[in-house]
Amino acid sequence: MSNVTSIRGPKHLICLALIAILPGVPTAVAYETTSLAILLRQLDQLERQAEASARLPHDDTPRYHFDYTRFRDDVQRMRQGIRGHLTPQRAQPRHPLPLSGDYRRGTEVNHERE
């Protein structure tokens, strides 16, 4: 006679389901954290490219110009939001500032000619 009991029934299936599901949970969190870290690096690169473009000489003839200052402020808000998600300082909900999204500004016309 064998003292080994067979594992069968609903408890066995629940255990197998938990074993199959639980290892994926930390993986999903790690994947999101990694993706957000990559996004932070991409925002850094985007900001550097925008700063370089802002320093280029620009032609004053177009009526509208890209507003690099407003764009930089929005990139900084996005960066703060991602960092706040990755390392929350408190558990209470916060109210993030809205992004501008409008990066076009009109050319100021100087009527006084020297």
Rank of each mutant, 00 (worst) to 15 (best):
D73C: 05
H58G: 09
M78S: 06
T69Q: 11
G84D: 05
Y68V: 06
P62C: 05
Q89N: 07
T87K: 07
Y64L: 05
Q92A: 14
R90A: 13
A91S: 10
M78V: 12
G81K: 02
T69A: 14
H85T: 11
Q89P: 10
H65S: 02
G84C: 01
D67G: 05
R70Y: 03
H58M: 12
R83D: 11
R63F: 00
H85P: 02
A91C: 08
R90G: 14
T69F: 10
I82F: 07
T61F: 05
T69S: 10
L86S: 07
L56V: 13
R79A: 07
M78K: 07
D60H: 02
P88A: 00
H65N: 04
V75P: 14
D59S: 13
F71K: 12
R79V: 08
L56I: 09
R83T: 12
I82V: 15
Q80S: 10
R90H: 13
M78C: 12
P62R: 00
Y64R: 15
F66R: 15
Y64N: 13
P62L: 04
H85D: 01
T87P: 01
D67P: 06
T69H: 14
Y68K: 06
Y64T: 10
Y64D: 15
L86K: 01
G84M: 04
D74F: 01
L86H: 10
I82R: 02
D60Y: 08
H58C: 15
Q80R: 12
H58S: 14
Q89Y: 10
T61D: 03
L86C: 06
D67K: 05
Y68S: 11
Y68N: 02
Q80A: 14
R72H: 15
T69L: 12
R83Y: 10
D67M: 05
L56N: 04
F71V: 06
R77S: 09
Q80P: 09
G81L: 03
T87Y: 09
H58F: 13
R79P: 08
G81V: 00
D67V: 05
R70S: 11
R77N: 02
R77E: 09
L86M: 15
R79L: 12
D73V: 14
R77P: 03
L86W: 15
M78Q: 08
R79M: 05
Y64G: 03
T69R: 12
D73E: 09
F66L: 12
Q80Y: 03
R63N: 05
D59T: 13
R90W: 04
V75G: 12
Q76N: 12
F66N: 07
L56P: 00
P88V: 01
R77Y: 01
A91P: 02
P62I: 11
P88N: 00
Q89G: 09
Y64W: 06
H65C: 00
D73M: 12
R70A: 15
R72C: 13
L56D: 03
Q76S: 10
R77D: 03
P62T: 05
R83C: 12
H58L: 11
H58I: 14
